[in-house]
């Protein structure tokens, strides 16, 4: 595995754990207390902040002359496009779902906005990590 794959796998694990904790917390609080208190469970999405540690945890491999070549740039570009598209789709879906849930004359809590942003960040990070791992995985036996 190269550095980009390690970072992608680490980010994937962190984001999946974060989303799992969030959904679990929301369900548990909703069953005991109900909404809107249950939305506080989405605070676990803040665990995604640990993805910022990835560049520090996985240092550059100095033993090789070339660390980032044309194939790595292409994979990075494709994964960024995938992540951007997924976050856009997420925003559109959440907006449409909110319209159906709350109706034309409904209102949403201000808390909904940071939750949407955090959710979009988690979804785009998830998509980026999966895209990186899949594209590198297609390259055959990796060193």
């Amino acid at each position: 595995m190269n550095r980009a794959q390690k970072i992608a796998l680490y980010n994937l694990i962190v984001i999946v754990v974060s989303i799992s904790f969030s959904v679990g917390a929301v369900i548990m609080v909703a069953l005991s207390t109900g909404f809107p208190v249950a939305f506080a469970g989405f605070g676990f999405l803040g665990l995604c902040i640990f993805t910022a540690l990835a560049p520090l945890l996985f240092r550059k491999e100095k033993q090789y002359k070339v660390e980032h070549d044309e194939r790595d740039i292409l994979i990075t570009k494709n994964s960024e496009l995938t992540a951007n598209n997924c976050s856009n789709v997420f925003f559109v879906l959440v907006s449409i779902i909110a319209l159906f849930i709350f109706g034309l004359n409904g209102t949403v809590s201000v808390l909904t906005l940071p939750i949407m942003v955090a959710g979009a960040y988690a979804i785009s990070g998830l998509a980026r990590s999966v895209s990186v791992l899949v594209q590198y995985g297609r390259g055959g036996n990796n060193g």
């Binding site: 070339v66 980032h68 070549d69 194939r71 390259g139 036996n141």
Partner: peptide, 12 residues
């Protein structure tokens, strides 16, 4: 001037 992974991917 590329990585070994790229050479592996090209050969495959």
């Amino acid at each position: 001037g590329v990585t070994r992974q790229t050479i592996i991917a090209i050969e495959a």
